[in-house]
């Protein structure tokens, strides 16, 4: 995995460049977030929740040399990290679903607790699809969800990353939430 210096350099070199050029940074952050998340979960054997916001912030402190980076780099980092977190979860969920289908035969050791996880996997995958749809209509709305839900950012941090007002973030959030909810849970979709 790239170290702190390399990642900071990547981040700095991307100032002002379009999103498409961010692949290397994205990959690096993806790997690191994934590693930190697993570390945390293994450390806390009983830790059934994981603080995504803390993860993203921890990754930032760990991966980026604070002395060199500026405010907009931080925002940029959060933006990429939220995307990475979304991908991590969706990837795991897909894998989980695939495994489930790969299935088993004679004795299934499925307990009540496990079913919950399978549902969660489906939910995440469906949410990801709906977010893609939403991005096609208004990309900023999907970005708000990505930052807040996957990245765990606060309204203010989200506003900073997107360079809009907090009020706009709140409005976007409500709009996006209504769209996603009706897309995911309405039976008679138009």
């Amino acid at each position: 995995m790239p170290d702190q210096v390399e990642i900071t350099q990547m981040l700095l070199s991307l100032r002002g460049k379009p999103q498409t050029e961010h692949n290397a940074l994205f990959a690096a952050i993806y790997d690191h977030l994934s590693a930190i998340a697993h570390q945390q979960l293994n450390r806390r054997r009983s830790g059934q929740t994981l603080d995504t916001a803390a993860l993203v912030h921890e990754a930032y402190l760990k991966l980026i040399d604070q002395k060199q980076s500026e405010w907009q780099d931080r925002n940029h980092f959060f933006s990429v990290a939220a995307l990475a977190m979304r991908h991590i979860l969706v990837d795991h969920a897909r894998r989980r679903k695939a495994l489930k289908r790969g299935g088993n035969v004679e004795h299934t050791i499925l307990d009540e607790g496990v079913i919950d996880v399978e549902n969660r996997a489906s939910e995440i995958v469906a949410l990801d699809q709906a977010l893609h749809q939403l991005a096609g209509l208004n990309e900023r709305l999907s970005k708000v969800v990505e930052l807040r839900f996957f990245g765990g950012l606060s309204v203010e941090e989200t506003a900073g990353v997107l360079d809009v007002s907090a009020r706009t973030v709140k409005r976007d959030w409500r709009m996006a939430r209504a769209f996603l909810y009706s897309t995911l849970y309405d039976e008679g979709s138009t």
């Binding site: 998340a37 994981l50 919950d116």
Partner: peptide
């Protein structure tokens, strides 16, 4: 935030 999802999906994976 996606905390609960993250924990359940990532662990042991």
């Amino acid at each position: 935030p996606a905390d609960a999802y993250a924990a359940q999906l990532l662990i042991n994976d």
